[in-house]
């Protein structure tokens, strides 16, 4: 046995809701979101910070939640894909992803949305190159990258009207 699993209490705010949890210290934020909080919209794929499927926002910045221990998030504010829609209405990015065909199998979509959301918060009027750079950490094997760019740019454009 490598030892009894150690746990620690943490307090995090997830999608606006304050949560107090006892988490295993070796569990990642991804583990805790998916298993302890049953927020399975955040996806697990490569576990080495290459694919971006597990992207969430921590204190306003996107991270790969597979590369962050849950205990590190103690005190943080976390936004996941489940927190994007408000009052049952999709947010503009979610709607644009649907309208522009930026979704195929959908497995990378939550991560793409989080990365796109962060990009637009930081840079409300990105050009294509900036969108490419901002989403470079999110692999889409279905290959709807161009449609994703279009979706992000359409939201940016709508925001400037």
């Amino acid at each position: 046995m490598s030892g009894v699993i150690k746990t620690l209490p943490i307090e995090i705010t997830v999608n606006g809701r304050r949560r107090t949890l006892e988490v295993a210290v070796h569990h990642t934020l991804l583990d805790v979101l998916r298993e302890d909080l049953e927020l399975t919209g955040t996806k697990e794929c490569c576990l080495v910070g290459e694919c971006g499927a597990c992207t969430v926002m921590v204190d306003g910045r996107i991270v790969d939640s597979c590369l962050m221990l849950a205990v590190e998030a103690d005190g943080a504010e976390i936004l996941t894909v489940e927190g994007l829609a408000r009052d049952g209405h999709l947010n503009p990015l979610q709607q644009a992803f649907l309208d522009k065909g930026a979704v195929q199998c959908g497995f990378c979509t939550p991560g793409q949305l989080m990365a796109a959301q962060a990009l637009l918060v930081e840079n409300p009027h990105p050009n294509v190159a900036e969108v490419q750079e901002g989403l470079a950490g999110n692999l889409c094997r279905c290959g709807c990258y161009y449609q994703i760019f279009e979706a992000v740019l359409s939201v940016a454009e709508a925001g400037s009207r």
């Binding site: 910070g49 996107i62 790969d64 990365a115």
Partner: peptide
């Protein structure tokens, strides 16, 4: 260094 996600950490 890495992606935006990585550079944020």
């Amino acid at each position: 260094v890495g992606s935006v996600q990585i550079r944020n950490r």
